[in-house]
Design a protein around this nucleic acid. Structure first.
Lengths: 229, 229
DNA sequence: AATTATATGTGTAAAATCAACGCAAAACAT
DNA sequence: ATGTTTTGCGTTGATTTTACACATATAATT
C-alpha cells in the first residue's frame, strides 16, 4: 500500500550507508556500487538504504550490505551520522554511516555481485551524494580507532604473517615502521598466537604465521589493559 | 496544520539529545531536565527534541540546548546515534546524541531555567528512556576524546590554574596524576599561555594562571602534531 | 650452476620519555 | 608564633622508544 504513512510533523528519511574496507597485497581498498539511475547515475556509491521500522541501524547496515554485495558476517560499526539539509537532492535524508571491515581473501560475493567493484584507496572514482566526505570521515575514524582497538585483524586472513600485519598498519596509518620494532611491539602486546601449520620452518624467508588471540585480548581488556599503536 | 505529512514508507522520528558536562571545584557534573509528563514523568532527561527539516543535527542540538537551558555558544559535538527499535515507548525514534561542554563558571542560564539542575556525575538520579545508556556512552566518548583533543579547556574558565586543569583531567579520567609530572607534561605540549593578570606573584601558594592557546594548537596540529594524554 | 639480491628473524646500545620523589616559600589554620 | 597546606621547581633511576647490523634460506639473475 502506497502513501499511507501520515505524521503530524514532517520527518526526514533515515538511511544507513556502509564504507567497506578491504586489504590485500595491493593495499587498502573500498568496495563501491555503481549507480544505475539518477541522481548521480554512473557515479559510484556506498551500499546502503532505508532503515526499516523493525530494525536498528546496525541491522540495517548489515542487511543492505548483504543484499547489495553478498557480504555476510563482517565487522560493522557506526562511526558518524550525516544530516546536512541538502545532502540528498531527492529529499531530506539522514544517514547513519557505518564502516565494514572484510577479510577480502576469505570472502565470497562482493566482487561477483553485479556492479560492485573494489577500488584502491588512492584511485577512488567520482562518488555520489556526499560520499566523498563520508569516505574521508570513515578513513579518519578507522585510523583513530586502530590505534587502540585490534580491528585491523578483521581485514586480514585468520592466519597471517608479521609483514602482512605491518603492511596493513602502514597502509591505514600511512606511516612506515621499522620492521624489528614493529614486530617487538606487536608481540609484546601478547595478543598474537603463533600458528604451527605443520610445515617445518627452515630458513627465515618463509615467515612465521600468527593468528589474533581474541580470548587473550578480552581477558586483558577486562583487566584494564589498553592496546596502543 | 495537523497530519499533513504523508510518505510512501513509514519513517522514524529523528531527535537529538544533548549530554551536558560541566566542571567546577566539586568535580564533573551533568545538567538534566525533569520530565513533567508521561512517559517517565518525574524522571530526569537530557535536553533534546525533534529535528526540524531546515536544520542539521548539530544545529538542532544547539537550538534545543538553548531553548531548554538557556545555554549558548558552547562546544557541541555528535558522538553516537541510538536507533534501538523500542528505545521510546511513544514510537520509533532515532536520536543523534551529542555532548556539550560548558564553562560552568562563566555561564548564565542553565540552572536558572525552570526544571534544569546540575547533578554530580556520581549522583545521577533515575533517567528517562535509554538515557542511562546514552550517558555511559557519552562518558566513554569524552574520556577517549580528551586523550587526544584539547577539549577539556571547554569546561574551564578562560583563565585557569594548573591544579584546576589537573583536577579536570583526574575527574574525567578517574585517575591520579603526580602534580609535578602533570604540569611538566602539560607545559611541554606548548599549548598553554601564561596569563599575566597584573598581580605580582609572591610566594607559590597563589598559582600561576594559564589560558589555552588555540592558535598555537592549530598551527601544531596542522604540522602533524598529535596531543597526548 | 653459480651468483646475486631479497625477505625474514633476532639482539643491542643510545636516546628519549616517564615515574617517583625532596625541597623551599608563602599562604592559611590554629 | 607555630605548624600545616599549597604550589612551584628540579633531579634521578626506571622504562620505553628508536636506530641500527648480521645471519640465513629463498627467489631472482646471470
Amino acid at each position: 500500500m502506497k502513501g499511507t504513512y501520515t505524521y503530524v510533523y514532517p520527518r526526514p528519511s533515515v538511511t544507513t550507508d556502509c564504507v567497506i574496507f578491504g586489504f590485500d597485497a595491493q593495499g587498502l581498498s573500498i568496495l563501491l556500487i555503481e549507480r544505475g539511475i539518477e541522481p548521480f547515475k554512473g557515479c559510484w556509491a556506498f551500499p546502503g538504504g532505508f532503515m526499516q521500522m523493525d530494525e536498528d541501524a546496525e541491522t540495517c547496515a548489515c542487511r543492505e550490505l548483504e543484499e547489495e554485495t553478498g557480504l555476510k558476517d563482517v565487522h560493522v560499526e557506526q562511526f558518524c551520522t550525516f544530516s546536512e539539509v541538502n545532502r540528498d537532492p531527492r529529499g531530506r535524508t539522514v544517514t547513519i554511516a557505518h564502516f565494514a571491515l572484510v577479510k577480502k581473501s576469505e570472502v565470497k560475493g562482493a566482487d561477483d555481485a553485479a556492479q560492485a567493484k573494489w577500488f584502491p584507496i588512492d584511485s577512488i572514482p567520482p562518488l555520489a551524494f556526499d560520499h566523498d566526505r563520508i569516505l574521508r570521515v570513515a578513513l579518519h575514524a578507522l585510523r583513530e580507532k586502530i590505534h587502540f582497538q585490534p580491528i585491523g585483524f578483521e581485514l586480514l586472513p585468520k592466519v597471517f604473517t608479521m609483514p602482512q600485519l605491518q603492511d596493513l598498519y602502514e597502509s591505514i596509518l600511512e606511516v612506515q615502521f621499522d620492521r624489528r620494532n614493529f614486530a617487538n611491539k606487536m608481540l609484546m602486546q601478547g595478543i598474537l598466537t603463533e600458528v604451527n601449520d605443520g610445515t617445518v620452518r627452515k630458513g627465515t624467508r618463509n615467515p612465521i604465521k600468527y593468528s589474533f588471540n581474541s580470548e587473550k585480548y578480552s581477558q586483558m581488556k577486562a583487566k584494564g589493559f589498553r592496546l596502543e599503536f
